[in-house]
Design a protein around this nucleic acid. Structure first.
Length: 244
DNA sequence: AACCTTAGCAACCGCAAACGG
DNA sequence: CCCGTTTGCGGTTGCTAAGGT
Protein backbone atom coordinates (compact mmCIF):
# COMPACT_ATOMS: atom_id res chain seq x y z
CA UNK A 1 0.00 0.00 0.00
CA UNK A 2 1.14 3.54 -0.72
CA UNK A 3 -0.07 6.83 0.63
CA UNK A 4 0.86 10.30 -0.43
CA UNK A 5 2.50 12.66 2.01
CA UNK A 6 3.61 16.04 0.76
CA UNK A 7 4.19 14.76 -2.73
CA UNK A 8 6.35 11.88 -1.48
CA UNK A 9 5.03 8.37 -1.60
CA UNK A 10 4.94 6.69 1.78
CA UNK A 11 4.73 2.95 1.81
CA UNK A 12 2.54 1.11 4.26
CA UNK A 13 1.72 -2.48 4.94
CA UNK A 14 3.89 -5.57 4.99
CA UNK A 15 7.63 -5.24 4.52
CA UNK A 16 9.46 -6.92 1.68
CA UNK A 17 12.75 -8.80 2.08
CA UNK A 18 14.58 -6.06 0.25
CA UNK A 19 13.16 -3.40 2.52
CA UNK A 20 14.25 -5.46 5.49
CA UNK A 21 17.76 -5.78 4.12
CA UNK A 22 17.96 -2.09 3.49
CA UNK A 23 16.71 -1.21 6.93
CA UNK A 24 19.15 -3.55 8.64
CA UNK A 25 21.91 -2.00 6.59
CA UNK A 26 21.13 1.51 7.70
CA UNK A 27 20.46 0.67 11.30
CA UNK A 28 23.89 -0.90 11.48
CA UNK A 29 25.35 2.24 9.98
CA UNK A 30 23.58 4.80 12.10
CA UNK A 31 22.43 2.89 15.14
CA UNK A 32 19.00 2.36 16.62
CA UNK A 33 18.24 6.06 16.78
CA UNK A 34 17.28 8.84 14.48
CA UNK A 35 14.57 6.82 12.84
CA UNK A 36 13.31 9.69 10.75
CA UNK A 37 16.80 10.20 9.42
CA UNK A 38 17.21 6.51 8.66
CA UNK A 39 13.83 6.50 6.95
CA UNK A 40 14.89 9.39 4.75
CA UNK A 41 18.39 8.33 3.74
CA UNK A 42 17.52 4.70 3.21
CA UNK A 43 15.03 5.59 0.52
CA UNK A 44 12.54 3.16 1.96
CA UNK A 45 9.66 5.62 1.71
CA UNK A 46 8.55 4.49 5.13
CA UNK A 47 8.02 6.65 8.17
CA UNK A 48 10.61 6.64 10.91
CA UNK A 49 8.01 5.12 13.15
CA UNK A 50 7.43 2.29 10.77
CA UNK A 51 11.16 1.63 10.47
CA UNK A 52 11.61 1.57 14.20
CA UNK A 53 8.68 -0.80 14.65
CA UNK A 54 9.95 -3.16 12.00
CA UNK A 55 13.38 -3.19 13.56
CA UNK A 56 12.19 -3.63 17.12
CA UNK A 57 9.58 -6.25 16.39
CA UNK A 58 11.18 -8.27 13.66
CA UNK A 59 14.71 -7.44 12.54
CA UNK A 60 16.49 -6.85 15.82
CA UNK A 61 19.19 -9.49 16.25
CA UNK A 62 18.53 -11.86 19.08
CA UNK A 63 14.79 -11.84 18.72
CA UNK A 64 13.12 -15.16 19.23
CA UNK A 65 10.43 -16.12 16.79
CA UNK A 66 7.86 -18.75 17.36
CA UNK A 67 5.79 -20.05 20.18
CA UNK A 68 6.14 -18.91 23.74
CA UNK A 69 7.66 -21.54 25.97
CA UNK A 70 5.75 -22.60 29.05
CA UNK A 71 8.34 -20.77 31.11
CA UNK A 72 7.79 -17.58 29.18
CA UNK A 73 4.05 -17.96 29.48
CA UNK A 74 4.31 -18.28 33.22
CA UNK A 75 6.60 -15.31 33.46
CA UNK A 76 4.21 -13.19 31.44
CA UNK A 77 1.33 -14.14 33.68
CA UNK A 78 3.38 -13.42 36.73
CA UNK A 79 4.63 -10.06 35.55
CA UNK A 80 1.29 -8.98 34.18
CA UNK A 81 -0.27 -9.64 37.54
CA UNK A 82 2.35 -7.32 39.02
CA UNK A 83 2.49 -4.59 36.43
CA UNK A 84 -0.67 -4.81 34.35
CA UNK A 85 -0.48 -3.79 30.69
CA UNK A 86 3.07 -2.51 30.92
CA UNK A 87 4.06 -4.53 27.90
CA UNK A 88 7.42 -2.96 27.26
CA UNK A 89 8.38 -3.43 30.87
CA UNK A 90 7.32 -7.05 30.78
CA UNK A 91 9.15 -7.54 27.51
CA UNK A 92 12.40 -6.40 29.10
CA UNK A 93 12.17 -9.41 31.39
CA UNK A 94 11.77 -11.80 28.49
CA UNK A 95 14.92 -11.90 26.41
CA UNK A 96 14.20 -11.99 22.71
CA UNK A 97 10.52 -11.18 23.06
CA UNK A 98 8.91 -7.90 22.09
CA UNK A 99 6.19 -5.95 23.77
CA UNK A 100 4.04 -6.44 20.70
CA UNK A 101 4.49 -10.18 20.82
CA UNK A 102 3.65 -10.33 24.49
CA UNK A 103 0.66 -8.09 24.00
CA UNK A 104 -0.63 -10.28 21.22
CA UNK A 105 -0.01 -13.37 23.27
CA UNK A 106 -1.83 -11.91 26.21
CA UNK A 107 -4.89 -10.98 24.19
CA UNK A 108 -5.10 -14.44 22.72
CA UNK A 109 -4.50 -16.01 26.07
CA UNK A 110 -7.09 -13.88 27.80
CA UNK A 111 -9.68 -14.64 25.17
CA UNK A 112 -9.20 -18.29 25.78
CA UNK A 113 -9.30 -17.68 29.48
CA UNK A 114 -12.53 -15.73 29.26
CA UNK A 115 -14.07 -18.35 27.06
CA UNK A 116 -13.09 -21.01 29.49
CA UNK A 117 -14.62 -19.05 32.33
CA UNK A 118 -17.85 -18.59 30.44
CA UNK A 119 -18.04 -22.27 29.78
CA UNK A 120 -17.24 -23.21 33.32
CA UNK A 121 -19.86 -20.84 34.75
CA UNK A 122 -22.59 -21.74 32.30
CA UNK A 123 -25.07 -24.34 33.62
CA UNK A 124 -24.54 -26.71 30.74
CA UNK A 125 -20.83 -27.08 31.25
CA UNK A 126 -19.52 -29.45 33.83
CA UNK A 127 -15.96 -28.48 34.64
CA UNK A 128 -13.02 -26.53 33.44
CA UNK A 129 -9.92 -28.50 32.78
CA UNK A 130 -7.92 -25.45 32.10
CA UNK A 131 -4.54 -24.29 32.80
CA UNK A 132 -3.07 -23.53 36.15
CA UNK A 133 -4.68 -26.28 38.07
CA UNK A 134 -1.70 -28.16 36.81
CA UNK A 135 0.74 -25.57 37.95
CA UNK A 136 3.51 -26.79 40.20
CA UNK A 137 2.50 -24.18 42.71
CA UNK A 138 -0.79 -25.09 44.30
CA UNK A 139 -1.94 -21.48 44.35
CA UNK A 140 -3.61 -20.11 41.25
CA UNK A 141 -1.54 -17.38 39.64
CA UNK A 142 -2.56 -13.92 40.77
CA UNK A 143 -3.23 -12.94 37.20
CA UNK A 144 -6.51 -14.75 37.35
CA UNK A 145 -7.75 -11.87 39.39
CA UNK A 146 -6.85 -9.63 36.49
CA UNK A 147 -9.03 -11.75 34.29
CA UNK A 148 -12.03 -11.02 36.43
CA UNK A 149 -12.91 -8.02 34.34
CA UNK A 150 -12.50 -9.78 31.08
CA UNK A 151 -16.20 -10.22 30.46
CA UNK A 152 -16.55 -6.48 30.72
CA UNK A 153 -13.54 -5.86 28.49
CA UNK A 154 -14.76 -8.40 26.04
CA UNK A 155 -18.02 -6.54 25.62
CA UNK A 156 -16.22 -3.37 24.72
CA UNK A 157 -14.13 -4.76 21.87
CA UNK A 158 -14.87 -6.41 18.57
CA UNK A 159 -15.18 -10.02 19.54
CA UNK A 160 -13.71 -12.92 17.64
CA UNK A 161 -13.99 -15.38 20.46
CA UNK A 162 -14.96 -18.94 19.75
CA UNK A 163 -15.55 -21.96 21.83
CA UNK A 164 -12.13 -23.38 21.31
CA UNK A 165 -10.75 -24.50 24.63
CA UNK A 166 -7.12 -23.85 25.34
CA UNK A 167 -5.14 -26.95 24.78
CA UNK A 168 -1.98 -24.95 24.74
CA UNK A 169 -2.18 -24.01 28.37
CA UNK A 170 -2.31 -27.58 29.57
CA UNK A 171 1.37 -27.73 30.09
CA UNK A 172 3.39 -30.52 31.43
CA UNK A 173 4.08 -29.46 35.02
CA UNK A 174 7.46 -31.07 34.84
CA UNK A 175 8.43 -28.84 31.98
CA UNK A 176 7.82 -25.83 34.17
CA UNK A 177 10.52 -26.96 36.52
CA UNK A 178 12.95 -27.51 33.70
CA UNK A 179 13.52 -23.77 33.35
CA UNK A 180 13.73 -22.15 36.74
CA UNK A 181 13.57 -18.44 37.43
CA UNK A 182 17.31 -18.29 38.03
CA UNK A 183 17.86 -19.47 34.48
CA UNK A 184 15.51 -16.78 33.20
CA UNK A 185 17.43 -14.11 35.07
CA UNK A 186 20.71 -15.46 33.69
CA UNK A 187 19.28 -15.18 30.19
CA UNK A 188 18.25 -11.63 30.85
CA UNK A 189 21.74 -10.74 32.00
CA UNK A 190 23.26 -12.39 28.96
CA UNK A 191 21.02 -10.53 26.59
CA UNK A 192 21.79 -7.24 28.27
CA UNK A 193 25.49 -7.91 27.96
CA UNK A 194 25.03 -8.46 24.23
CA UNK A 195 23.31 -5.14 23.87
CA UNK A 196 26.14 -3.46 25.69
CA UNK A 197 28.69 -4.80 23.21
CA UNK A 198 27.29 -4.22 19.74
CA UNK A 199 29.02 -5.57 16.69
CA UNK A 200 31.12 -3.21 14.66
CA UNK A 201 30.65 -2.55 10.98
CA UNK A 202 27.56 -2.36 8.87
CA UNK A 203 27.38 -5.92 7.69
CA UNK A 204 28.85 -8.00 10.45
CA UNK A 205 26.62 -10.55 11.98
CA UNK A 206 23.86 -9.89 9.56
CA UNK A 207 21.77 -12.96 8.86
CA UNK A 208 19.41 -11.43 6.41
CA UNK A 209 21.05 -9.95 3.39
CA UNK A 210 23.64 -11.35 1.06
CA UNK A 211 26.78 -9.50 0.10
CA UNK A 212 25.21 -8.48 -3.16
CA UNK A 213 22.21 -7.16 -1.29
CA UNK A 214 24.48 -4.91 0.70
CA UNK A 215 26.35 -3.74 -2.35
CA UNK A 216 23.10 -2.86 -3.97
CA UNK A 217 21.88 -1.28 -0.82
CA UNK A 218 24.91 0.97 -0.49
CA UNK A 219 25.08 1.97 -4.10
CA UNK A 220 21.40 2.72 -4.28
CA UNK A 221 21.40 4.94 -1.25
CA UNK A 222 24.76 6.61 -1.37
CA UNK A 223 23.48 9.64 -3.17
CA UNK A 224 20.58 10.09 -0.80
CA UNK A 225 22.87 9.77 2.21
CA UNK A 226 25.22 12.32 0.77
CA UNK A 227 22.40 14.77 0.32
CA UNK A 228 21.15 14.20 3.83
CA UNK A 229 24.59 14.55 5.34
CA UNK A 230 25.20 17.71 3.39
CA UNK A 231 22.10 19.07 5.03
CA UNK A 232 23.75 18.31 8.34
CA UNK A 233 26.85 20.25 7.21
CA UNK A 234 29.10 17.24 7.20
CA UNK A 235 31.77 17.16 4.50
CA UNK A 236 31.16 14.36 1.97
CA UNK A 237 34.50 12.74 2.75
CA UNK A 238 33.02 11.44 5.98
CA UNK A 239 30.58 9.33 4.06
CA UNK A 240 33.38 7.07 2.97
CA UNK A 241 34.53 6.80 6.53
CA UNK A 242 31.23 5.29 7.50
CA UNK A 243 32.01 2.26 5.41
CA UNK A 244 35.28 1.43 7.14
C1' DA B 1 -14.53 -28.36 -3.17
C1' DA B 2 -16.26 -24.13 -1.68
C1' DC B 3 -17.37 -21.22 1.76
C1' DC B 4 -17.24 -19.48 6.49
C1' DT B 5 -15.15 -18.58 10.92
C1' DT B 6 -11.48 -17.92 13.93
C1' DA B 7 -6.73 -17.36 15.91
C1' DG B 8 -2.54 -15.37 15.46
C1' DC B 9 0.35 -11.98 14.02
C1' DA B 10 2.21 -7.75 11.77
C1' DA B 11 1.62 -3.18 11.36
C1' DC B 12 -0.67 1.30 12.07
C1' DC B 13 -2.42 5.10 14.99
C1' DG B 14 -2.69 8.42 18.63
C1' DC B 15 -0.83 10.09 22.65
C1' DA B 16 2.56 11.22 26.07
C1' DA B 17 7.25 11.49 27.54
C1' DA B 18 11.88 12.67 26.49
C1' DC B 19 15.08 15.35 24.19
C1' DG B 20 17.44 19.28 22.14
C1' DG B 21 17.92 24.00 20.54
C1' DC C 1 11.44 27.79 30.52
C1' DC C 2 9.38 27.17 26.03
C1' DC C 3 8.55 24.95 21.89
C1' DG C 4 9.26 21.84 18.11
C1' DT C 5 10.84 17.22 17.07
C1' DT C 6 11.70 12.48 18.01
C1' DT C 7 10.97 8.29 20.42
C1' DG C 8 8.43 4.87 22.96
C1' DC C 9 4.24 2.82 24.47
C1' DG C 10 -0.29 0.82 24.50
C1' DG C 11 -4.48 0.16 21.93
C1' DT C 12 -6.45 -1.20 17.75
C1' DT C 13 -7.03 -2.85 13.08
C1' DG C 14 -6.51 -5.69 9.06
C1' DC C 15 -4.62 -9.62 6.72
C1' DT C 16 -3.97 -14.50 6.20
C1' DA C 17 -3.48 -19.36 7.21
C1' DA C 18 -5.84 -23.04 9.27
C1' DG C 19 -9.69 -25.46 10.73
C1' DG C 20 -14.58 -26.40 10.54
C1' DT C 21 -19.03 -27.06 8.13
Amino acid sequence: MVTMMGGEETRKGPWTEQEDSQLVCFVRLFGERRWDFIARVSGLNRTGKSCRLRWVNYLHPGLKHGRMTPQEERLILELHSKWGNRWSRIARRLPGRTDNEIKNYWRTHMRKKAQERKRSTSPSSSSSSLTYENSPTSNPPPVLAGAENWDHIQNSIPCRITSVASKEMNHDPGAMHAYPMEQIWRDIEKSEAKVAAPQCGPCQGNQIGTVSNWDYCYAESLLRMENELKKLFLPPVQIGGLFC
